[in-house]
Structures are given as C-alpha cells and as structure tokens.
Design a protein around this nucleic acid. Structure first.
Length: 483
RNA sequence: GGCCCCAUAGACUAACGGUUAGGUCACCACCCUUUCACGGUGGCAGUAUGGGUUCGAAUCCCGUUGGGGUCACCA
C-alpha cells in the first residue's frame, strides 16, 4: 500500500514553527517513500476561526518548500479537504455509532457538568471523566424521554461509549508499544451541541476516508490516541500507523510558546534564509547520523526516516539557527545578496544604490555578519556618509603629530595609478618601509578616516569598493577636522 | 493530583552490548592578520540516580529522582 500522510492544522492564526516541523516531517516521509502529502483544514471550532489563516498557512508551507499533493485548491480524490465542508459526513458516522450502541446522547448543561466535576474532584480519585451513570443521557433516561427531549430541540451532544476495563494498545513508530486502560479514557464528545464534530471524530473519519496510512503528529496528541483507537475499532476500520513527534521546547523546557519569543513562521521568514531555516528545523528531533550539519531539501528527503526521530523534546535555540543562516549566506550569489540588501535599504528608507555596488559591499562583508539585514548597522559607512568617528578608536590611534605622515600617504594613495587592493597595499607597505614605521601605524588612522569604526573588512578592499573619489573626500575631511 | 511520554555537556545531537563517549552551536585560548570576522589548532563541558542482567552497559530490565505532555461542547 502506498504511503499517504496529512498535515491537518486549524486555521486559528499564524503557522507555528512546531506545526511547520510536523508538516516538514510528514512531507519528508511522504517524498522519501514516494507517497502523497495531504493538507486538511480542521476548522470545526467556529469560535476560533481566523480570516485568511488558511491562505497564510499555505503560503508559509510553500515558502518552506513543502509541496502539497492533495488539499483545498490542490485537487485530490478525497475532498473536500476542509472539514466544515464535510459536515454531513460526520453526522452520518456519528449516527452509525449511535445505532450500534457505541455512542449515546447527552443533555447535560455546562452548569451540570461543572457541578459534576467539582463533585468528582472532591472524591478520592481526582477523576474528572464524564460520569455516565449519573448524568442526563440516553443511558440513564427512558427511551421516550430521550425522544421527547430531542424532538423539543433540547441542546444535546453525542458522546462515545468507551468500553469498560479494556486495555487499549497501539504501536507508535517512534515510541513503541503504548498501553492505556480504557478506564482512563473519557466518554469523549463526538458531536457538539452546535452539530459540529469534535477533533476526535472528524480526525478519525477523515483519516479513514482519505486513506491516510501514517498519522505523524506532535506528542501532545499521544494521550488522546486511545480515543482514536476506540473509534477505529467501533467503526471496524483499520487503524493507521501512528508516530508522535517530540515537542519543540522553550528554553525552560516547556512546550514552545509565544510568551518566550517568536513562534510564527512568518516572523522567521522575515529574518532567516529559507534553506537555513528548513535545515535547522529538520534537525530538531531527527538526525540521519554522522557529523554533517548542512543538508538541502533533496538530501533530507533521501535520508529521512521515522526510526531516527528522537523521543525527547528539543529546545528551540535560535543561536544555532543564526549560525545556519551564516552558513547559507556564504553560499548566496552576489546578485542574491544585493537584492536582499536593497530590500533592507528600502525598509529602512535609506537611499537606493546601484546593484553592482551593493554586490561588492555584500561580498566585502558577508563573512562578518550573520544576516544581510545587519549590513547597514555593521558597515553604515559603505551605504552613506560617515556620521561619527568612534571615540575610543580615535583616542587610541590618532594624534595631531601623525598629520604630516598621513598627509603624504594620502597624497600617494590618491595618485595610485590603480585604486585597487594590490597596488595600494604595495604602495603603503613601501611607504612604511621608507618612513620606518609599522604598517599598523598608518592603517588604523586610515580606517578611522575611511570608516570611522574600529571594525570592518580589509582596509584596501574596503577602499577599493568605495572608490578613489569617495576615499579622497573622506581622508581630506578627516584631516580638516583633526589634522 | 490521575494517566501517558521522556532523560548523553548550557543547546542540538552521534553511539543501536565492547569507542580514550564522536560532531555542531555557544564560550575560552592560541595561530593567521591590518581592526573585526572567516579559516586553522586546541580547550571547557556529558551518559540524572540506585540496583540488577552480562565477561563487558550510555545502550537491556526494575526502582528513584527530575522534566514534559494531557486530562474542554479547542485543536
């Protein structure tokens, strides 16, 4: 049987990085096995629906390079792929369970349930499960009474009838055998009083109908998997294979959440290189063995397997992500870098510059920044006039006494036949020998004049990019102020 | 609290009974050097704990401790 997996998010806002990783693993698994990737939108909670969330979800998946084979707007034989459009299906299957005596109606109000919980809580066990024997439902009420309540339009839900004292065993591809006694499983609501299904019902029905072979999802679903198993059994359907992925964690090891930093993929999209981000996320919880760190999408597909997915959660630490960004930044072409830099300039409302020039700037400083967007801060002097001279640097490397020495060097540099690295370097070295000073003695003052900062790329490379005219202007300007 | 899952350095991880426990990020030092980086070399730092099983355990089993997840008419 060919592999078919699904990513089934709720359209409740942005795409969470944890969700993206789940989607990525599903995708890698599907592609590795020549299978299909389904996108299903789980929008059964109408109160949490967010406009445009679906489009955003899809946009982010596509940005990450995750291709969808079946889903809303992607075609496929098992549609529709949006649960709110499958409404009738769930009612039909719920009724099937009702008829088979594997589900029942319940008429309890929110207050009654609340009461029930406080009552159970005060008991010895701390058991919050639905007390089916003492509540208002079709198990405790007479048949004609139930009929009447429904006919009167009394709000009601459908609950699944969990078998008593039965061991629910399922095999998880990552965790091995997991066993839970049905005593621990609640009589889960299948159909809410608004007629919509809950996640559990919709999920099981859809996974079955869509012929999903592997359910790969986050570990937070592990505790409710027995419910799903009970449903598969009640319907007499074959269960898919389950794989519960380790969670992505905050620094304090709790489930990754918004409170402790960005978790929206769109935020990362703004800052990070796509391939760097995917590479990083792929290796959070999975590793193909070996000492390599850099993998492109095709390699990830080729190497991915569920057996090597870890069991323990992984802290989402952006420090390493920054390093990945640096690695991928080095691989970009000058043109790609220049285009990013141009975008950044625009964002900062800085003057536009010729692409050719920006390319040179990027090549000059790329191994000194983790992000292209850092360049305007790292080397503002490449993108505009010098606004200040770093105080400490000035104090350390400049005194008025240096004026004659520097003036003559400036004159020679200005007249260098080629305003390039090599001749200027040679010229300056020769000058230092002649004057019997170390190269450092003149390079620091030069850097000060040209950049105003103590850090930066090689001096003559920097001057070459800036050009003869600009450098000449800056050197003269400096002498005028401090000479 | 009940149930479930998990446990290799600060972080990500390798090891699938036999290694001086390997790699990467971060941090530190040195080399390179024209400052800062890059690069190179080296360093810091780990099998939570107690028992078993075994000739031999990070690896298998049990207990303990610790952490997490989950217990909704949310997914």
């Amino acid at each position: 049987m060919s592999v078919k997996v699904r990513f089934a998010p709720s359209p409740t806002g942005y795409l969470h990085v944890g969700g993206l990783r789940t989607a990525l693993y599903n995708y890698l698994f599907a592609r590795h096995n020549g299978g299909k990737m389904v996108l299903r939108i789980e929008d059964t909670d109408r109160t949490r629906f967010v406009e445009h969330a679906q489009e955003n979800l899809i946009k982010m998946l596509q940005w990450a390079g995750i291709e969808i084979d079946e889903g809303p707007g992607f075609g496929g034989d098992c549609g529709p792929y949006v649960q709110s459009e499958r409404f009738d299906l769930y009612t039909k299957y719920a009724n099937e369970l009702l008829d088979a005596g594997k589900a029942y109606y319940a008429f309890d109000t929110a207050e009654e349930l609340e009461e029930m919980r406080t009552r159970l809580q005060s008991g010895t066990k701390g058991d919050y499960r639905y007390d089916r024997k003492n509540m208002r439902n079709s198990l405790t009420l007479a048949a004609d009474e139930v009929e009447k309540l429904i006919a009167d339009g009394t709000p009601h839900v459908i609950r699944m009838l969990v078998p008593e004292n039965e061991n629910i065993i399922f095999h998880d591809l990552i965790r091995g055998e997991v066993k839970i006694n049905s005593q621990e499983v609640d009589d889960q609501i299948l159909i809410k009083s608004d007629g919509f299904p809950t996640y559990h019902l919709a999920n099981v029905v859809d996974d079955h109908l869509m012929k999903i072979t592997h359910v790969i999802r986050g570990e937070e679903w592990l505790p409710s998997t027995p419910k799903h198993c009970i449903l598969y059994r009640a319907f007499g359907w074959e269960e898919p294979l389950f794989a519960h992925l380790p969670l992505l964690l905050n620094k304090d090891k709790t489930k990754l959440s918004k409170r402790q930093g960005s978790v929206a993929v769109e935020d990362f999209k703004l800052k990070y290189n796509r391939d760097a981000f995917v590479n990083f996320v792929a290796l959070l919880g999975w590793n193909p063995s070996g000492d390599r760190e850099i993998y492109d999408m095709n390699e990830l597909i080729e190497l991915f397997n569920l057996e090597k997915v870890n069991k323990a959660g992984a802290v989402f630490d952006t420090q390493k992500l920054d390093w990945y960004n640096f690695q991928y930044l080095q691989k970009l072409t000058p043109k790609e870098m220049a285009s990013e830099l141009a975008d950044e300039l625009k964002k900062r409302e800085m003057p536009e510059m010729p692409e050719e020039y920006l390319e040179k700037v990027c090549v000059l400083v790329k191994e000194r920044v983790n992000f292209i967007a850092d360049i305007p801060d790292y080397a503002p002097y490449m993108l505009g006039d010098i606004t200040e001279y770093e105080e400490k640097y000035l104090a350390k490397h400049w005194t008025k006494e240096k004026t004659p020495l520097m003036k003559e060097l400036i004159a020679r540099l200005e007249n260098s036949p080629e305003f390039n690295y090599e001749p200027m370097h040679e010229l300056t070295k020769a000058y230092c020998e002649e004057k019997e000073v170390k190269l450092k003695e003149v390079i620091h003052p030069l850097r000060l004049m040209i950049t105003g900062k103590s850090i930066g790329a090689g001096m003559f490379e920097t001057m070459e990019v800036l050009g003869r005219e600009e450098c000449s202007k800056r050197m003269k300007n400096f002498i005028e102020i401090y000479g």
